[in-house]
Amino acid sequence: MVKAVKGTLVKCDASIKAMLVDIDSKRNNEFIIEDLDEEHVLVKETKVKELKQLLQSMLKERLKEPESSDSE
């Protein structure tokens, strides 16, 4: 029988996906329901916001933003 699973589809780059999987495995797999392919994962609907925040802080840690030149 066909199954329907409720959740949020997250589409992103392969590199970002790797980070998402990393965050998930460090936190007892409480975010990701299913790893779909290179660029898609299914995430628990209630956890999306938290996951996004964790990703943001991880990105901030790992990437240094180039100074933006805002000349008029």
């Binding site: 959740g7 949020t8 589409k11 995430v43 990703l55």
Partner: peptide, 9 residues
């Protein structure tokens, strides 16, 4: 960096 959509798999 991510695009999300709520629904069913």
């Amino acid at each position: 960096r991510v695009e999300t959509s709520i629904g069913y798999l």
